[in-house]
Simulated scan of single mutants.
Amino acid sequence: MPPSPPQWPISFGSALLRATLYVLFIAGIAQGGYLEAIYLPNVRYSELGFTELTQTVVLACCCALLIYTRQVLQVWPTVTLLLLAFVAASLVREQDYFLDHYVARHTWKILVALIVLPSLTWVIIHRRRFLEEFSHYSNTFAFGLFAAGVLVTYIFSRLYGRQELWRAVLQENYVRDFKNVAEEAVELLGYSLILFAMIELLLLARRISKARQDAL
Results as ranks from 00 to 15, higher is better:
Ile10Gly: 02
Phe25Lys: 02
Gly32Leu: 06
Leu73Glu: 11
Lys109Leu: 06
Pro118His: 10
Ile124Cys: 10
Val116Pro: 03
Lys210Gly: 00
Leu48Ile: 04
Cys61Thr: 12
Leu40Ala: 11
Glu52Asn: 11
Gln171Asn: 08
Phe50Cys: 14
Val112Ile: 13
Ile26Gly: 00
Leu111Gln: 12
Ala37Glu: 14
Ser119Glu: 07
Glu36Met: 08
Thr56Gly: 08
Pro2Gly: 06
Ala85Thr: 09
Leu81Ile: 09
Val116Thr: 06
Leu84Phe: 15
Leu59Val: 08
Tyr22Trp: 14
Val57Ile: 14
Val43Thr: 08
Ser14Ile: 05
Ile125Gly: 00
Val116Asp: 01
Cys61Leu: 15
Ala168Asn: 11
Val43Asp: 06
Ser4Met: 13
Cys62Pro: 03
Val152Phe: 02
His136Ile: 07
Val112Gln: 13
Phe156Leu: 14
Thr121Pro: 04
Met1Gln: 10
Ala104Asp: 06
Ala142Gln: 03
Gly144Tyr: 06
Thr107Val: 09
Arg206Leu: 15
Val75Arg: 11
Leu145Tyr: 13
Ser138Gly: 12
Pro9Ala: 15
Leu40Arg: 07
Arg158Phe: 04
Trp108Glu: 01
Ala19Ser: 12
His101Arg: 14
Ile38Asn: 00
Ala197Arg: 03
Leu48Cys: 01
Ile26Tyr: 05
Ile155Phe: 08
Thr51Arg: 03
Glu200Phe: 07
Gly32His: 01
Leu53Tyr: 03
Ala30Val: 12
Met198Asp: 09
Leu159Met: 13
Thr20Leu: 10
Arg176Met: 14
Arg44Gly: 01
Phe130Leu: 12
Trp76Thr: 05
Val43Gly: 00
Ser135Glu: 11
Ile67Gly: 10
Met1Val: 15
Val75Tyr: 11
Val112Cys: 10
Lys109Cys: 00
Ile199Ser: 06
Thr20Phe: 12
Glu133Leu: 07
Tyr154Cys: 06
Val152Asn: 04
Ala205Met: 12
Pro77Gly: 10
Arg212Phe: 14
Ile29Leu: 15
Leu170Tyr: 05
Phe134Arg: 06
Val92Lys: 02
Leu24His: 01
Val87Gln: 08
Trp166Tyr: 04
Arg207His: 14
Ala88Met: 09
Thr69Gly: 07
Lys109His: 09
Gly190Asn: 11
Leu114Ser: 08
Ala89Cys: 08
Tyr34Gly: 01
Tyr97Phe: 12
Lys210Arg: 15
Leu35Ala: 05
Glu47Val: 14
Val123Arg: 05
Pro41Arg: 07
His106Trp: 13
Leu188Gly: 04
Glu52Ala: 10
Leu216Cys: 05
Val123Met: 13
Ile199Leu: 15
Ala64Pro: 05
Cys61Met: 13
Asn139Gln: 12
His101Met: 10
Ile125Lys: 15
Gln213Cys: 01
Leu114Gly: 00
Arg18Glu: 02
Leu114Trp: 08
Phe156Gln: 03
Arg207Cys: 06
Ala197Ile: 00
Gly149Lys: 03
Ile125Asp: 03
Glu200Trp: 10
Val150Tyr: 01
